[in-house]
Write a protein that binds this DNA or RNA. Sequence first.
DNA 1: AAAAACTGTTTCCTAGGCAAACAAATTTGA
DNA 2: TCAAATTTGTTTGCCTAGGAAACAGTTTTT
Lengths: 173, 173
Amino acid sequence: MNDRRIVRLASKDREPRDASDSAPVSYGVLPQLLGFHLRRSQTAVFSHFMEFVSPEESITPGLFGMLEVIAANEGLAQSELAKAMGVDRSTIVKAIDQLEARRLIARRPSSDDKRRHRLCLTPAGKAARARIRELILNHEALLVRSRLSTEEVQTLIGLLERLCQGAQPASFP
Amino acid sequence: MNDRRIVRLASKDREPRDASDSAPVSYGVLPQLLGFHLRRSQTAVFSHFMEFVSPEESITPGLFGMLEVIAANEGLAQSELAKAMGVDRSTIVKAIDQLEARRLIARRPSSDDKRRHRLCLTPAGKAARARIRELILNHEALLVRSRLSTEEVQTLIGLLERLCQGAQPASFP
DNA sequence: AAAAACTGTTTCCTAGGCAAACAAATTTGA
DNA sequence: TCAAATTTGTTTGCCTAGGAAACAGTTTTT
């Protein structure tokens, strides 16, 4: 079966979990699955984001994504933002509330459709966006540059883009 | 500024959101960020999983991941499973409860450490695991094969593995 | 033997997201 | 034209997933 009975140099003689005692666990077929690696990678990048940028700017990837989309589409309506972020329009309300409470964005009334809110960045929001964007670029560079070359990152992004052909958009990380 | 005033063939003459009227929204700097693409890809694969395998087997990626890790490490303790899945040990309790309620796994008492539960698959659990694994392999093949070649998938997984060097493990997708 | 550490559990809290219902406003169509 | 359908933002209710803290029982360490 296994040779633990002979070796037995560790202090504890526990019931065998599987093979050797404190061996790293096996993940079965998971490492063959793309979804597994995507999940791990996304979690790793998210964690690094939180450690690196949140302490300085107190924002999440999702909120920055919203900031970025609003900035790039001045006057966007909430429904359009929700669609762009891939969430329900009822979900976006609280997130917008947060950004508005922090005076980073404003809901401006639309003159020709009184149902709509035109989302715009405040001056403070534009400044925050610029700062956070630099911070995030540093975070990604720091995380990635020791592990992948620039070309490899481009390859990776290219493959991920092709994988997402025809998929609805999603928040950020 | 823009030429909407001249063209004006659409029925609505709305305040300009940014450039052309129903233009796809711009994502700003997000497409340059690896985290953005990882998030999108992970969401896309997760959605396809839910559409393809859940109706037949009623399981989530996370629960299958647990099933797989338990199967590959018979007698695993809950804390070890939690660590392998990258979550707190208080989080794993409810998930294990679910699998146990469905008679897919069993908490067996450990003979030499009365604090521990040895997690094992029941016969029904082993059968379910085998069925679900095939289903998932089909799901991934169906999702990926029209978009990426076999070599490209291997390249992608390789790059993702290098990106996760030294990161703590994570659930599944 | 006493103190420290570990295991599983419960309770409480948070974040995030969907569905349904709603009022106000706009568009459609008969 | 005017009623019906649709759209927009919002609220409420519910669910899932997850962490933090406290806990009792059980080792392990000192």
